[in-house]
Amino acid sequence: MLQSILEQKRALSVYAADHNLPATVTANQWTLMERTAEVLAPFEELTRDVSKETATAADVIPAITAALRRVLSREQTTDQGVRTMKSTLLEAVETCFAEVEKVPVYSIATLVDPRYKDRYFTKSDNLSLAKESLIQEMMKIEESRAANKEPEAAEPVSKAPRQEARSSLGSALDEILEECQSGAQSVSKTSADVQMQIYLSEQTIPRKNNPLDFWKTHATQFPSLAAIVTKSLCAPCTSVDSERLFSVMSNILDEKRNQFSPEKLEMLIFLKKTKKNKTKNIHFILKP
Rank of each mutant, 00 (worst) to 15 (best):
A63W: 07
E266P: 07
Q3P: 09
K86G: 10
L265Q: 00
S186I: 15
M267E: 14
N281M: 09
K272R: 03
K149F: 13
I108K: 04
A154H: 11
L6E: 14
A153M: 13
N277Q: 12
T220D: 08
N20S: 14
N251Y: 12
Q76T: 13
R10E: 13
F121W: 02
R69E: 12
C180K: 10
L6K: 11
E243W: 12
T204V: 08
A55G: 01
K9F: 03
K287G: 11
D193H: 15
D254Q: 02
S224P: 02
E263C: 11
Q221M: 14
V112C: 06
Q163N: 15
A37Y: 05
A153N: 11
R70W: 05
S158N: 12
M33N: 04
K102F: 09
P104S: 12
E202H: 06
R70Y: 04
P223Y: 00
A92L: 08
V71A: 09
L129M: 11
E175H: 09
R145G: 08
E164H: 15
R207S: 08
G183V: 02
D254Y: 06
F270N: 06
S133N: 10
T54I: 12
S73N: 04
N258S: 10
A57K: 01
R74L: 10
L233T: 01
F43W: 00
F260V: 05
E45L: 09
E91A: 07
R83C: 15
S201W: 09
E132T: 14
T36C: 02
I198Q: 04
V100L: 10
R83D: 14
H19Q: 06
S107R: 04
A23C: 11
A67Y: 00
D118I: 05
I135F: 01
F246V: 02
D174T: 15
T217C: 11
L127R: 06
V103Y: 08
E38S: 09
E53L: 11
V112H: 03
F121G: 03
E101M: 07
R145I: 08
F260W: 08
A92G: 14
T36G: 04
A16Y: 04
L40G: 00
S124R: 09
L233A: 00
C237H: 03
A57C: 05
